[in-house]
Nucleic acid binder design. Sequence first.
DNA 1: ACGGGTACCTTGTGACGCATGGTAGAGGGA
DNA 2: TCCCTCTACCATGCGTCACAAGGTACCCGT
Lengths: 116, 116
Amino acid sequence: MVEGRQGSLVSQMRRGTIAFCVMALLREGSRYGFDLVRALGGVDGMVTSEGTIYPLLARLRRDGLVESAWRESPSGPPRRYYELTKSGETSLREFIEEWARFSDAVDGLLRKGRQT
Amino acid sequence: MVEGRQGSLVSQMRRGTIAFCVMALLREGSRYGFDLVRALGGVDGMVTSEGTIYPLLARLRRDGLVESAWRESPSGPPRRYYELTKSGETSLREFIEEWARFSDAVDGLLRKGRQT
DNA sequence: ACGGGTACCTTGTGACGCATGGTAGAGGGA
DNA sequence: TCCCTCTACCATGCGTCACAAGGTACCCGT
């Protein structure tokens, strides 16, 4: 119960960014939660789970960054489809600039003292 | 009291990475806390404060990733200098690989649906 | 009728960035 | 001497969120 837990230093890294990754996926078109979990799970370096995504989507809805509508599935239970609001698009654009600055800063710092 | 707070979605992004930025700075040579605050504060996109750095250094010490030693200052109160342990170097190397995967994943996702 | 895949959700835990405020040494000016 | 500023350390409390774990319900094939 020591290695690989959520509390390991590395696994805090995703905080705050997953929300915007979800919003970026929604920019391509509306999607439902379970589908988003699969989409993110298929990206190398970006693990996640339902326990992360559903509360996240609820927060985005609460904050007016996304809107949702129920649609029936051709087979299976109904799905709640999400799409970006104007506010969500603006917020996403702002984040993208923040992310560029931040990740450049981290890249620069991580190169310090390197001998490669 | 609504905008720009710590709780704004953007400001969660630094979680988990600042520790490794500090460790990367220590790879260049030993430093003391107040100096680290200034060093990080001078990097664009990487804001921080004493309230972040001192607890962080205490955690790194607790986890054996850094070691510290007191030294007198030529003028002013004594300083606690930190340096990386073997364990810290290993941990940093692992993080650098994780970070590369993760930031590539985010970069890729943020490009989705973009029209630029 | 029942097992498995799909799809939604809630609750609890732990971690940590940050604001705030507090202590103490050294040096300079009135 | 008294005070002010700068340096340097630290502790406390708040709020947020990733994740694990567990629960409900629908549909379909056997």
